[in-house]
Nucleic acid binder design. Structure first.
Lengths: 343, 343
DNA sequence: AATAAAAATGCAAACGTTTTCATTTTATAG
DNA sequence: CTATAAAATGAAAACGTTTGCATTTTTATT
């Protein structure tokens, strides 16, 4: 196994220094804080670096100051409208701060988080954002012991044990449930993903139940449908339910499920909202433009992503102030055409 | 500006060595190639590392062998079903190789690529995959001069100047166009995004034109519709076209556009495929489950992402063999319910 | 059992920066 | 114009690993 040395003598700080006729120290200073080097020197270094095509080595510099300029993001999955808007916003905001994003997914497999966090830590991330509030103890401890700031994005809880920024998902569930109740719906089914490994879904589910004045035990099994966050399975589960018997409305765990539900209705020849009402959570791209437009609860994913990035970039330089910060992002119920007003 | 030292004496290789009663060199060897250290020693090191909660510092090690274990991915945008499947697959496969993904987006702004590539290079990525074949010269040169393998994913061209893996988008466009022609359609409109900064769309567009025996000049303006890759604008553009006059079929630049088109039809009360036929490209998640199911050309995004990751992980260890490798991924026309057979 | 060859380990010099401390240059004041 | 303070620069020691070379231990061979 011959060890290849790929870097064909790419110029380093020393070459730049030599060409500019200054010491390496000065070149380093120029890149980290240009103002402390005199204007003419600055210019010479700038030219030398440009001529040589110099690119700094953040890894070498990270050895000293322990900042890599890289921020981690851990999401259940990228391949899902749910998070892609957040990821995009997070990434774009990071770039404004001259940081880059190291991203990893665990497919709703929380145990994977320890190997993921280890892997990110090996790359010396400056901070990390994770989706949701439920996490294993180990990865959290690994991060804490190294003083790496953590932020839970997406879900908000007033009693969270780590900093968080997101919407109150219990409230969110309650809001959509209540909206249906207020509009006169009495026979309502819930279509949710498995809620054990998913604090967001768990909170929403319980919020909705609360608005319907139900408890898990009083909810009839045929009003409690399970579906993955996936249009196909949602369509299938909902079609199965509706072909048997029909509630007046469906609360969908998120918009993906709601979209699947809408297609199920179309497939069965049911009119929305005349024959059945549908409400989602999330307001993903596309929901607005379906026919009928999907009534849903807007979770400002972009805002959450941007704010998370900003917070994290800020925290990195703060001295490990272990204060927990919680930011609740407001949701907004968007009335479109998929819910019928019964009164 | 007080400089914080976040790393509260996290244990290094030296601490592990001391605790295991061996030299640092041996510990290093243990982590890089466990087999060359004797079994009992191996065990002692393993325990010591575990007890101390040691996490290797890839940055320090990257200073020697110049491999960071990080692979770059440059995409136009994450927030789009188009690429999220590819990104997900790429990322998952990378994790199998114990690599992580540094991802950056440029929003179809090719000029941004130079600052993106610089940023990735500063983090010493081992290799990089970029969407599409069109790129500025500068970033390509920066990569080449540092011997960083590049791979263009998504689009395939037999004459590409860099390695590529993807579908032949000209063929793809031709296939959907030809399918419509073979089914007796004569009055066909094209709905595509701007094709100047987007080689995939450019190729598809020209392929479709070719199948229709049209040239850009013989295609009537009202059969050449522009729309972004966005359900809302697609719906609007298509609705505008259809409210005036009606071709028998629409070729959509990708499935997102096709989805928007379907909603436009539903909004206008047009039946698909009875009143108008729709065909997409991509087969994104969801397309299969719409009503009617979208007839489209399947581009195996997952396969492309996985293969790209594998190729790149492989290449990293290869000596800069500057051979261009091109892999064409086969597409597949999926007949669902959105195209009417006129003959 | 002695020797040669192979395997395992240790020592110390890298890797490309940053940073402390010391030194030189420049600006400010008397 | 000197004395002093401030600003700019340089020299060299870090940072946490890896690796070539030297040394010790083990294994295989006779």
């Amino acid at each position: 196994m011959p060890r290849p040395r790929s870097r064909k003598g790419a110029p380093g700080i020393l070459e730049v220094a030599k060409r500019a006729g200054v010491s390496p120290a000065t070149v380093s200073r120029y890149f980290n804080d240009p103002d402390i080097v005199k204007s003419p020197t600055r210019k010479r270094i700038k030219e030398a670096a440009h001529d040589l095509g110099y690119i700094r080595d953040r890894m070498a510099s990270a050895m000293h100051n322990h900042f890599s300029g890289t921020i981690g993001l851990v999401v259940p999955t990228i391949d899902n409208a749910i998070f892609s808007e957040l990821i995009q916003a997070f990434s774009a905001k990071l770039r404004e701060y001259d940081r880059t994003m190291l991203i990893a997914t665990h497919n709703y497999n929380l145990q994977d988080e320890v190997s993921i966090i280890r892997s990110l830590l090996e790359r010396r991330i400056d901070a990390v954002a994770m989706i949701g509030l439920d996490h294993e103890r180990t990865p959290l401890e690994m991060l804490a012991s190294r003083g790496v700031p953590v932020l839970a994005a997406w879900n908000y809880r007033a009693d969270s044990t780590i900093s968080c920024i997101g919407a109150d998902n219990f409230k969110a569930g309650w809001q959509v449930g209540n909206y249906l109740v207020e509009n006169g719906h009495k026979d309502i089914a819930l279509v949710f993903p498995p809620i054990d490994n998913n604090d967001r879904a768990y909170d929403r589910f319980n919020g909705a139940l609360n608005a319907l004045k139900h408890s898990p035990s009083t909810l009839p099994p045929n009003r409690n449908i399970t579906s993955l966050y996936d249009i196909g399975t949602a369509k299938a589960s909902v079609a199965e339910l509706l072909s048997k018997n029909r509630p007046t409305a469906l609360i969908c765990g998120n918009d993906v499920i709601a979209q699947g539900a809408l297609f199920a209705c179309q497939m069965l020849g049911l009119r929305v909202p005349e024959d059945i009402s549908l409400i989602g959570i999330g307001d993903f791209s596309g929901s607005a433009h379906m026919e009928p437009g999907l009534t849903t609860l807007r979770l400002p994913a972009k805002r959450i992503g941007e704010l998370a990035a900003e917070k994290l970039c800020g925290k990195v330089n703060l001295n490990a102030d272990n204060q927990i910060e919680r930011i609740e992002i407001k949701t907004e119920l968007i009335e479109r055409g998929s819910v019928r007003k019964l009164k």
